[in-house]
């Protein structure tokens, strides 16, 4: 899209940069928006402008919020003695969807990576260590079951002060999973984490 000067072409160009969209699907989406001008285009533009104006990372945990402290950090009913460490905001939302956790969060925004140079400072780990000193008794490491994810989890566990328990999510057979379709590593991890019935 080299002409790019017409507003509709600029819209298509921008939409095509979104995850899951290419130039063809961006054209379809742009056309759909224009056709549903009142129902979709104007409200979407307003919503996007509002998000761009007001949504910022929570100063406490890194969640997205319109206030300095997000609703989770500001909620006195959440257990302040537990912090769940997640890679990014999408993981926090996944944990919240489960309604199984009532503590607070810390969003790293990435993982330690030996090759792209992401170190402890880039992930805000010193800030996590500060938070933990403020009466936290357990840090739940809900990080991906990958080499980088688990390297980060062990690093975080190592920097926690004495007396703070570090736990991690279990690895194994997912709900509804069949053994035949699982990879060897998951079956091995599930077997090692077996429990009495």
């Amino acid at each position: 899209m080299t002409r790019g000067q017409e507003p509709i072409e600029k819209l298509i160009e921008l939409l095509a940069r979104l995850p899951g969209l290419g130039p063809r699907s961006a054209r379809r989406a742009a056309l759909h928006l224009v056709r549903k001008r009142d129902l979709l285009l104007a409200p979407l533009a307003e919503a996007m402008a509002e998000v761009a104006r007001s949504v910022r990372p929570c100063l406490e945990c890194g969640n997205l919020s319109t206030a300095e402290r997000c609703a989770i950090c500001a909620d006195p009913r959440r257990d302040a003695a537990q912090i769940c460490v997640v890679q990014d905001v999408a993981d926090l939302w996944a944990m919240e969807r489960s309604s199984a956790y009532r503590g607070r969060y810390h969003v790293l925004g990435g993982l330690l990576n030996a090759l792209d140079g992401t170190g402890p400072e880039e992930l805000g780990l010193p800030r996590l260590a500060e938070r933990v000193r403020e009466g936290v008794s357990e840090v739940i490491l809900a990080l991906p079951a990958t080499i980088d994810g688990q390297t980060t989890a062990h690093y975080v566990a190592d920097i926690l002060p004495e007396g703070v328990q570090a736990t991690s999510l279990a690895q194994g057979v997912p709900v509804g999973g069949e053994l035949d379709f699982l990879d060897d590593g998951t079956i091995g991890a599930a077997l090692r984490a077996r429990r009495s019935l």
Binding site: A114, I147, H154, G188
Partner: peptide, 16 residues
């Protein structure tokens, strides 16, 4: 991955 991830030193060694 599963064998390496079971031990923090092994993980650190794989990264190194």
């Amino acid at each position: 991955a599963a064998a390496i991830m079971s031990d923090r030193r092994s993980l650190a060694a794989m990264s190194a």
